[in-house]
């Protein structure tokens, strides 16, 4: 399932890395980003693992190079990530920076979109309002001469960090 997810995500233009532990994934994030990071809601454990990272304020998102988020689930058939982005600032963190890093726990990968419908249904019903985003690869366009061009208004790069041991 993880292999299928990785193949589909890579076919969609994402960069996929697999990490045995959160600590190793966190180290990779630190090494990649260096500077400040725009982050959407992250689980406490992730925040803790990245405690030494500087998190940017939403006002800075326009100029920040890296966005960081944590996926609720992955879809193997299409290499998609399900992101819960009900907080507008968190949404901005995945939409404005040119490079997005997303954690994905391997055990949350499901085979296809249909098998995600229960989760989607639950998430849509559980809060008074919600914003769910299925993200597949970086932002893209083919609006000029149908030439595929990666990175228009959204991220130009999408890095998926699969946590295999968690």
């Amino acid at each position: 399932m993880i292999d299928r997810f990785q193949a589909a995500a890579e076919a969609a233009g994402a960069v996929v890395g697999r990490f045995p532990t959160l600590a190793e994934a966190a180290r990779h994030v630190r090494e990649t980003t260096g500077g400040p990071v725009a982050a959407s809601e992250l689980p406490d454990a992730v925040r803790k693992a990245l405690a030494d990272l500087r998190f940017a304020s939403p006002q800075e998102y326009r100029d920040v190079r890296f966005g960081l988020s944590f996926a609720t689930a992955g879809v193997a058939a299409t290499g998609s990530l399900l992101l819960e982005l009900s907080d507008p600032a968190g949404r901005g963190a995945t939409a404005l920076p040119p490079v997005n890093l997303v954690f994905l726990t391997a055990s949350t990968i499901v085979p296809d979109l249909q098998s995600l419908s229960g989760t989607l249904y639950r998430l849509l019903a559980s809060h008074p309002s919600s914003y769910l985003s299925l993200t597949t690869g970086p932002s893209r366009t083919a609006d000029i001469e149908r030439v595929l061009t990666i990175g228009v208004h959204g991220p130009k790069e999408l890095h998926i960090l699969i946590l295999e041991g968690e």
């Binding site: 969609a12 058939a77 299409t78 998609s80 009900s86 907080d87 507008p88 949404r91 979109l113 249909q114 419908s117 989607l120 849509l124 008074p128 309002s129 919600s130 914003y131 769910l132 985003s133 299925l134 993200t135 597949t136 690869g137 970086p138 932002s139 893209r140 083919a142 959204g154």
Partner: peptide
């Protein structure tokens, strides 16, 4: 979800688009 599954494939031959978003209510 049937429509989301159909649209990109039939429109441009993509399995799925980069973003499929479900928005419910204002974000507080």
């Amino acid at each position: 979800l049937d429509i989301v599954s159909m649209l990109p494939k039939n429109a441009t031959g993509q399995k799925i688009t980069s973003y499929v978003s479900f928005i419910r209510g204002p974000s507080g």
